[in-house]
Lab assay of single mutants.
Amino acid sequence: HNLTITQGKLFFHYNPKLCLSEIHKMEEVSGTKGRQERNDIALKTNGDQASCENELLKFSYIRTSFDKILLRWEPYWPPDFRDLLGFMLFYKEAPYQNVTEFDGQDACGSNSWTVVDIDPPLRSNDPKSQNHPGWLMRGLKPWTQYAIFVKTLVTFSDERRTYGAKSDIIYVQTDATNPSVPLDPISVSNSSSQIILKWKPPSDPNGNITHYLVFWERQAEDSELFELDYCLKGLKLPSRTWSPPFESEDSQKHNQSEYEDSAGECCSCPKTDSQILKELEESSFRKTFEDYLHNVVFVPRKTSSGTGAEDPRPSRKRRSLGDVGNVTVAVPTVAAFPNTSSTSVPTSPEEHRPFEKVVNKESLVISGLRHFTGYRIELQACNQDTPEERCSVAAYVSARTMPEAKADDIVGPVTHEIFENNVVHLMWQEPKEPNGLIVLYEVSYRRYGDEELHLCVSRKHFALERGCRLRGLSPGNYSVRIRATSLAGNGSWTEPTYFYVTDYLDVPSNIA
């Protein structure tokens, strides 16, 4: 807008934040220059609390790290170098490059900038070799853009010569660093050979998330399962459950009422301010606690030095998902009996873990797994792929695949051998790939016309006998059925096997 004052003059007093240069501009645009008398524009009460600059400061050096910015700028000295009290560095987070010096300023003089007072450097006698002032900004957020400017702080001049310097606002972004852990990993099994893994992005990506790394490792069953005799009275049979499938998407929606109208769909109840505040506090606490764990609990591995020492970490090797089922080394339970199943799973520490690289999504279907087997899954978020990966501390989750139908069934015939004193040795093959492992066998036998009897055969007993022995049988026709019990439950009964026990007292003698 054009402003013209045809008559009258300007009068400025007691404006401590208004620089004289701005008042002189007002004289020019209003056409009143030359009308004012000496005392109409006070030299001592206008701009006496402001830094009124008329020179431009330029930054000469900028260096960044993930949490620091090192700045240096060209030296500046007023005509009387004693008038320079120091520099004021202003900075704040700036997602967009549209910041002005006066953003967030209120009537009390406060604003949204963080201000650092910096002492002037030592003055050199040689004007050509003056030290460049600077400042190291610490405690910054990774991968965050900051708006920065600097200006001088000078003393009051009796001659009211307006001098000083100020830089333009520059924008500097800190470097990326390792992201925080992925949030809320959930693993479920939808079949006997697959596990579905879902997660949420890290709360602090500290860069642009480029991919996720998912490692999985087959877990050995508890050692007590191999040692305890679950045929003993009072000892509860062990059981394991597989990871249940995901709930429906509708039930997972946030901010939804727990109660549904019987007449149909209901609208979600909005969260109160107290609920939102509580969630923010919980989120802040979780982030602080995660940072504490990362800094205190997890110790970084030592990389190899120039002395030739090897990095103890196993090298990563990509495998196809079809090879995942046989990740671990199978060892027989008892070496003397080769027909026992290889369900003991000690994992070799030198073995390469299978892994998958996930790009542009937060889910993965891990296939080719062994049925009813526990897996430990390790999830890392990465925001750099080359020249070397920059990934987060791992988040861990466990899951067990679903049982395989008929995996616990005894394959092959049940054979028998009759000894003296009416002892019958029953023999059968253990299931080759049971659900988890076989903890015991149930032997059901009966003599024709009598009630059915049951015998429990422990895992250890089966390994020693290759089956079991029935003792003290009365003469007669017998039928026997056997079924295995694994961590997933009972298998199917075998087809009945028949044998006849004679009275050993009636056996004919070869003595003449």
Rank of each mutant, 00 (worst) to 15 (best):
G322P: 13
E265A: 14
A407H: 09
H211I: 01
R483P: 01
S398K: 11
G412N: 14
P245S: 13
F355T: 08
I366E: 00
P300K: 11
K236V: 11
D323A: 13
L473H: 01
N477C: 05
H454I: 14
M402L: 11
R353L: 13
T415N: 03
S315W: 12
H211W: 09
L455V: 12
V480Y: 06
F289K: 04
K361L: 10
L232S: 09
T288W: 13
L232Q: 06
I418A: 08
M402I: 07
R471Y: 15
D408V: 01
E430L: 04
V480L: 06
E282Q: 15
V296A: 13
T241D: 07
D291T: 13
D506W: 10
K317H: 12
P332R: 11
E281P: 05
E290N: 07
V334N: 08
A463L: 12
N510A: 15
L455T: 10
S458F: 05
E420P: 14
Y504S: 13
N255W: 15
C266I: 14
D503M: 10
A463N: 14
D503E: 06
S320E: 11
T502H: 04
R400P: 01
I366N: 00
P475N: 08
E247S: 13
R376M: 03
G264S: 05
D222I: 07
G322W: 12
A309L: 12
S342C: 04
F246T: 12
R286Q: 07
E260C: 04
Y441S: 01
P238T: 09
A463T: 12
A395H: 13
S305L: 08
E452C: 11
D385S: 03
K302S: 11
R316I: 13
V345K: 06
Y445N: 02
P475K: 09
K361P: 10
L213Q: 13
P314I: 03
E221K: 14
R447Q: 15
S251M: 14
N326A: 12
E389V: 09
Y212K: 00
H371C: 07
V480F: 07
L470E: 00
L473M: 11
R400H: 14
S367R: 08
S458R: 07
G472K: 14
E430M: 13
Y396Q: 07
R471T: 08
A484I: 03
P270W: 08
E224G: 05
K357W: 02
E290S: 10
D503Y: 08
W428P: 00
S392T: 03
S344N: 07
V296T: 10
E221P: 05
R376D: 15
S458K: 14
P403E: 06
K271V: 06
K271M: 05
E221F: 12
C267H: 15
G322C: 12
A512V: 06
A463R: 11
S367V: 11
E282R: 11
L277V: 15
E388V: 11
R318S: 10
S320Y: 14
V501E: 00
P387Q: 11
S320T: 11
H371E: 04
L277M: 12
L232D: 14
G489M: 09
P475M: 07
S509Q: 13
T502K: 07
L426S: 02
L369E: 01
S474F: 11
G467P: 01
A394T: 11
V359C: 13
D450W: 08
A263C: 05
T415V: 12
F499H: 01
S320N: 11
S243L: 10
E281R: 10
R286A: 13
C231V: 03
N383T: 11
R466L: 08
L228H: 03
E356S: 07
S223A: 10
A335T: 11
L379I: 09
L235E: 11
P300H: 09
P434R: 02
E433M: 06
H211M: 15
F226Q: 05
P238R: 06
T497K: 07
H425V: 13
Y441L: 01
T497L: 10
A399C: 08
P300T: 13
A263Y: 15
N510P: 10
L277R: 12
N295P: 15
G449C: 06
R400N: 06
A394H: 14
N206M: 11
Q219L: 13
H425Y: 13
P245T: 12
T485E: 15
E495F: 14
S398W: 02
E442C: 11
P314Q: 05
F355N: 13
I418S: 09
I366A: 03
I438D: 02
A463H: 08
Y445T: 04
F337T: 13
L235W: 11
G436V: 15
R446A: 11
R400M: 07
D250P: 14
E281Q: 13
E224I: 03
Y259P: 08
Y500Q: 06
I209G: 12
Y478H: 06
K233A: 13
D506R: 14
P238I: 09
V297S: 08
E442N: 07
R218L: 12
V457G: 00
T307V: 09
V439P: 05
D450V: 13
Y259I: 04
F226K: 03
L453S: 06
M402G: 02
V324T: 07
S304P: 08
P434Q: 04
T328K: 10
S268G: 12
Y230F: 08
G264N: 15
H461E: 06
A220C: 15
N326R: 10
H461V: 11
I377F: 05
R471L: 06
C456Y: 03
N383R: 06
S348T: 06
V393P: 02
P338V: 08
Y504N: 04
E404M: 13
D222N: 11
P434L: 01
G234K: 08
E417Q: 13
R447H: 07
S304D: 14
V414G: 01
S248R: 09
V327I: 05
R390A: 05
V296E: 07
A336P: 11
V296K: 15
L321N: 12
A220S: 12
S243I: 09
T347I: 13
N206P: 04
E310R: 06
A309N: 12
G472Y: 10
K361R: 07
E281S: 08
F355I: 10
N208H: 05
R316E: 09
E362S: 09
D311N: 14
L453G: 11
P387L: 09
L293A: 12
P338K: 06
A220V: 12
H371P: 11
D409F: 12
N339Q: 09
F355G: 08
H294E: 06
E247A: 10
V423K: 04
P270F: 13
D250I: 15
H425P: 01
D229V: 06
L455W: 05
S341Y: 01
P475Q: 10
K302A: 04
T401D: 00
V296D: 11
S367E: 03
T328Y: 12
R286S: 07
E224N: 15
D503N: 15
R286C: 10
H371G: 10
S251W: 02
W493V: 03
F355E: 07
R471W: 09
V324E: 03
F337K: 06
R481Y: 07
G234H: 11
G322R: 05
P387S: 08
V359A: 10
Y292T: 07
V424G: 02
R240F: 14
V501A: 03
Q275N: 08
P300V: 04
G449P: 11
E265S: 07
K278M: 07
S262V: 08
T497E: 08
A394V: 08
S223I: 11
L379N: 01
K317D: 15
N435V: 00
I366D: 00
R483Y: 02
P332A: 09
P205C: 05
V297W: 08
D450T: 10
R313E: 15
F419Y: 02
F499M: 14
N339E: 13
K271I: 08
S262I: 15
P238H: 03
K361E: 09
H416S: 11
V423L: 03
G207E: 02
E362M: 09
E310Y: 14
N383I: 15
E442W: 09
T340R: 07
V414M: 07
Y212T: 09
P413G: 15
I418H: 04
V423S: 07
V423W: 06
R459S: 09
H425N: 14
N326W: 03
S342A: 13
P431G: 06
V214Q: 00
K236S: 13
P431Y: 02
R318I: 07
Q252W: 12
Y498V: 06
E417F: 08
T401P: 04
G368V: 04
V324F: 09
C269Y: 12
